[in-house]
Write a protein that binds this DNA or RNA. Structure first.
Lengths: 155, 155
DNA sequence: AAAATAGTGGACAATATGCTCAGGAAAAGC
DNA sequence: GCTTTTCCTGAGCATATTGTCCACTATTTT
């Protein structure tokens, strides 16, 4: 979908100071309040802005180990029953089905390396999971972000 | 850090309806407004809540291909110069350094499979990147979430 | 038992919101 | 080139929310 410069400036502004509200946005961007409201409604309606939920830092909750776990699934059992089981594990933050030698990729967090073992054991215990392979994230030089993408999508 | 049941209910409420504001939260949770305000301040101060920025859906912007790319880095060049270059590519949404046979893992998006090739080419062109390996996310049965984790962290 | 901590409920002014409207500017269609 | 549609503006109004106090009451901690 098409996003113009005002949309980008609006999103950028909200990313930097999310608590400022519509009126303050309109002042900062030098446009009418109704315009900001209309743009936000439009971005939400088109699905560009999914929500404004609080962003939680797992590390602040004590889960400071992040790992990516790839899974091989027994062929007979489809992906979805496995995904449903994985979804029941709180430490599994996201699950993708993927191309290549493996079938699924999960992002998981844990309280420590020892705790990661516990989480992986839970994953292995899921019916249909044949094998797992884990890599631990040592550092995150570029944390998840979308602003550059929004800027690139402009026009 | 320690999170009690009220914190969890508050975060859960905000995840479901992020636009409701402090006063409405206090009504829904049957606590005083000042309590909600204090809890939110505390969660933010302790770093549990990083922010409330708008969540952007890359797919809605036309970037409906997601891939995970692992990189091998030439040993002489450290990780950081590479990460800095990767950060300049808008389609690179996050970068981790990892254990195992590879050195880095990136999440990237692209407008199509052909476009993914273009993005990967840019990654390969980064000085110090020796080899890449990509897997494409076909489906995301569990999209990124933290609420179950918050609930699990309770107490 | 005393002290510190957290929650309550109420007040107040200042600010923000949702909604509506008429007019002007810009873009699209013919 | 002209018309229609779309988008933005600036304003108004009633209502709701915020930030900031306060005194009082649990609930823990020491």
């Amino acid at each position: 979908m098409t996003v113009d410069q005002l949309d980008v400036r609006l999103v950028a502004l909200l990313e930097e100071e999310p608590r400022i509200g519509v009126l303050e946005c309109s002042r900062r961007l030098n446009v009418a309040r109704g315009t900001v409201q209309a743009r936000l409604d439009r971005l939400a309606a088109r699905g560009v802005i999914i929500g404004y939920g609080p962003q939680i830092d797992p590390a602040a909750l004590g889960f400071d180990v992040t790992a990516f776990v790839t899974l091989q699934i027994r062929q007979v059992s489809g992906h979805d029953p496995v995904a449903d089981r994985l979804a029941l594990i709180p430490e599994v933050l996201e699950v993708h089905t993927i191309t290549g030698g493996h079938d699924m990729l999960c992002r998981v967090v844990a309280r420590s390396n020892a705790d990661l073992q516990r989480v992986i054991d839970q994953i292995v215990d899921v019916h249909g999971v044949v094998r797992t392979e884990s890599v631990i994230a040592l550092d995150t030089p570029v944390p998840y972000r979308t602003l550059p993408l929004v800027k690139a999508a402009q026009r």
